[in-house]
Amino acid sequence: MHPAYSVILFTTSSGAGYGLLALLGLVGVNHGQASSLWFGVTAMLVALGLVTIGLLSSTFHLGHPERAWRAFSQWRSSWLSREGVAAVATYVPALLFGLVWSGLIEAPSWVAPLGIFTAVMAMVTVCCTAKIYSTLTTIRAWNNRLTVPVYAAFSLATGALMLAAISSLFGRFQLFQVIIGVMLLVILIALKLAYWRAIDTNPRNHTMEDATGLGRIGRVSQWEVPHTSENYIQKEMGYVVARRHAAKLRRLVILLLLLAALALLAAILAPAIAILAALLAAAAGVFERWLFFAEAQHVVTLFYGAKAA
């Protein structure tokens, strides 16, 4: 699949934002009101900012962004629509939570319920996003039970590192942030490795013979392409990263995540390093998401010469 930068930015940025939002909600549940107004406002602005930047960038790849509102209508069948609904809906508890948690509005008893609500909605949104991909049976690499967990883990891990980074800026960096962050990173690394293992070992069980139905006669190979220049289908669905290149990038993703974990640990000594950890995780997110697309083979490629998918 063609890795569109708008979609990569959207899923990584909003993923981190929702992760942060979810964790802030949990922080609220645990600690009540934010320790300072500025910390609360900044954290909420960063979280909602990442979400909003992500959502806006997702409209960049639309042919008709001005019609984006229509996407809220088909929540009964479409995960994309559900994602849109959930994304917008999340703003309501999130803003309310932000107001009460940061202390802009004094209502301490509402912090916990709004925190939970916000956390749940944030993670629902992330899962909806992941579901868009994981329900596509046409793309074996996505149609995988680890797709949703990986998205959730990425969202939470990058969110946790964001939280740590913001906390360090406000001198509120705490050990539990390290513990949670490192734990999430370890889970993420494990899930991602498991995911790659799964997509590498899953048999590519659709063949050119199946796609064309000509297997009933014999072995099929492509002779003439329908048009001599690449078309939309080939450009959008036919993008395949070289295996060797992909392996390098996979190692880079894991390395970046490990470095992020190390940086987070180092932040115990010097909290400002948490910012570096967040940046490393964000970078890992971009490469991971690029690979998520570039390694995904669409079944339509069978019509264009791929032997199996």
Binding site: L62, G63, P65, H298
Partner: peptide
């Protein structure tokens, strides 16, 4: 009413849907 999100073309195993850039 199409917003040009292209998701339908991803969902089609047969490559039947093509996105029109100029029309969006």
């Amino acid at each position: 009413t199409c917003i040009g999100c292209k998701l339908c073309s991803w969902a089609c195993p047969y490559g039947a849907r093509e996105y029109d850039v100029s029309h969006g």
